[in-house]
Nucleic acid binder design. Structure first.
Length: 499
RNA sequence: GGCCCCAUAGUCUAGCGGUUAGGACGUUGCCCUCUCACGGCAGUAACACGGGUUCGAAUCCCGUUGGGGCUGCCA
């Protein structure tokens, strides 16, 4: 299709959530795959619930996910005049009518119908009314006149199910087009905007499935060609209920804050309900290359954080440490100081990146390095029975560190703002680690010690924890002075434990 | 309640009338190993049920059950 155009049309009544993000991604991917355009429209006709901050969040979150609209974003609140002219047309053609029923009266009708076990629909009290000017000054809404001729039905073909969905018109209420305050309702505004902006394909959640016949009626009544429709199933929480705040993080920005990479979230979302054979890893480029509606699943999908975490760790492993440092600094909260962009930090990040599933986790594993001092904790150290041999080892280990050549630690003087500078620094780092390894192994074998028996002692001395980054990297990053300092402090500590 | 949609392992899915029902996450075991990870290898686990159609059904049709959605002057 030459001039395909899709759109994402969220209402700014909340942050961009996972379901919306997936819908946006599907629309974006579909348009891009077919060489078409993707548009963003903010459906802010509910003035009560719409908020500027949500609008901004939606736009920012889409950008973060690399979902870029091809056209200027449309705001429905700025198009009220346009909708109005089309209502006038419908009224003139007798396809819509004024309704003066009060909300209280409607509520009564409704309760009555429910009590009689009937479908609660508008009773049609004003359907044939010819209001005079005086009456028009009283509060009213405008309703769509649904074709009530017997057997009338409205249908459309759903691209995902690849089948026609038909609904009897008597299932469809004379729905409101314009509210009492003159603001158009959702079903009316979407149709006008989608038609006027040339949207050819609408991909949306299947919670809209039952709205579609109403919208088809409107397209017909207004003389527009209806676009194609594709209804994607919902995303469910682990309990099988529709995904909501109860299930934990649901907004895109929250995933960002929790240390997820946009690549991971995009990859996860595209695979939630869509597949391309047995492939699991998709870059945005791959997605655009392969995406097609025919591979979208008809059934609802349960959101699974474990798989998202797996993808996140996959993408973290692919990043170079300097980029990771920047990413971590991007999401740091107000209480944290930014990581410094230097080779010592990079060395640890590099060795830690396969050990963390999120950026937040990665940052936390750096605590021992960022903190000036370490508080050794009895509850951890009491598990070990330190003895004189340990003290002796620590003493000579400290001397070994102090005796290391300064040259080994010297690679912090490169220009890390340039790509080649980073590459050189990383190259030098590799050599330094290699040197430390050789020196250290020499030191061990000279004394008939093994890595296995001494590693935990060093780990505890450097971090106070039983789990740490690899030892060579820690020696490099902490540097001679801090290593020696910690070794001495730790020695003192374990001597006191023994007593 | 009415209308609509859906149904392969715990989860995401491949399958599109003939397969030992494939992959991924998770999980379990082993290997690697300075801890924890990464990585490698192996294992675990599914066609909701009942009728048809057919030589043959996970695949097509109907029903049952289960789940979801809609039933707003929200979107």
């Amino acid at each position: 299709m030459d001039n395909m155009k899709t759109r994402f049309a969220p209402s700014p009544t909340g942050y961009l959530h996972i379901g919306g993000a997936r819908t946006a991604l599907f629309n974006y991917a579909y348009a891009k795959h077919n060489g078409g355009k993707f548009a963003l429209r903010i459906e802010d006709t509910d003035f009560e619930r719409s908020e500027k901050r949500f609008e901004e969040d939606i736009i920012e979150s889409l950008k973060w996910l690399s979902i870029f609209p091809d056209e200027e974003t449309i705001f429905q609140s700025e198009r009220l005049g346009i909708y109005k002219s089309y209502v006038v047309q419908l009224l003139k053609e007798n396809k819509a009518y004024y309704c003066f029923c009060s909300k209280e009266l409607l509520e009564e009708d409704r309760n009555k119908l429910i009590a009689e076990n009937k479908k609660p629909m508008y009773v049609g009290r004003c359907r044939e009314l010819k209001p005079d000017e005086a009456l028009l000054k009283t509060p009213h809404v405008i309703r769509f006149r649904v074709d009530r001729s017997s057997g009338a039905a409205t249908g459309f073909k759903d691209l995902i199910r690849n089948q026609y969905i038909n609904v009897n018109n008597d299932e469809i209420d004379d729905f409101v087009l314009v509210r009492e305050d003159g603001i158009p309702t959702y079903n009316f505004a979407v149709v006008i905007d989608d038609a006027l902006t040339g949207i050819t394909h609408i991909v949306r959640g299947d919670d809209h499935l039952s709205n579609t016949p109403k919208q088809i009626m409107l397209y017909n009544a207004l003389g527009f060609n209806a676009p194609e429709f594709a209804h994607v199933s919902m995303i469910l929480g682990s309990d099988g209920k529709r995904l909501s705040k109860r299930h934990g993080a649901t907004s895109v920005n929250q995933y960002k804050k929790e240390g997820f990479l946009p690549e991971a979230l995009v990859n996860y979302l595209i695979r939630l309900g869509w597949s391309h054979g047995n492939d699991e890893i998709f870059s945005m480029e791959d997605i655009i290359k392969y995406f097609d509606l025919k591979n979208i699943s008809k059934s609802a999908a349960v959101f699974n954080t474990e798989k998202l975490l797996w993808l996140n760790s996959h993408y973290i492993k692919l990043k170079d440490p300097f980029i990771l440092i920047n990413l971590i600094n991007d999401i740091k909260d107000d209480f944290q100081s930014p990581l410094s962009i230097d080779i010592k930090t990079a060395a640890l990040v590099e060795s830690l990146k396969s050990r963390a599933k999120t950026l937040v986790e990665l940052r936390n594993k750096l605590d021992f390095f960022i903190g000036e001092t370490i508080d050794y904790k009895d509850e951890i150290l009491n598990e070990f029975n330190f003895n004189e041999n340990d003290s002796a080892f620590l003493k000579s280990f400290g001397e070994f560190i102090a005796g290391l050549s300064d040259e080994i630690f010297n690679c912090g003087d490169m220009d890390l703002t340039a790509r080649t500078g980073k590459e050189n620094a990383l190259e030098k780092l590799k050599n330094s680690i290699e040197s430390i390894k050789n020196e250290f192994n020499g030191f061990l074998s000279k004394n008939n010690w093994t890595m296995k028996e001494k590693a935990m002692l060093i780990r505890l001395a450097f971090t106070g924890e039983k789990v740490s980054p690899p030892i060579y990297e820690m020696i490099f990053s902490l540097g001679k002075e801090r290593c020696v300092e910690r070794i001495e402090k730790f020695s003192d500590y374990i001597i006191n434990i023994k007593r």
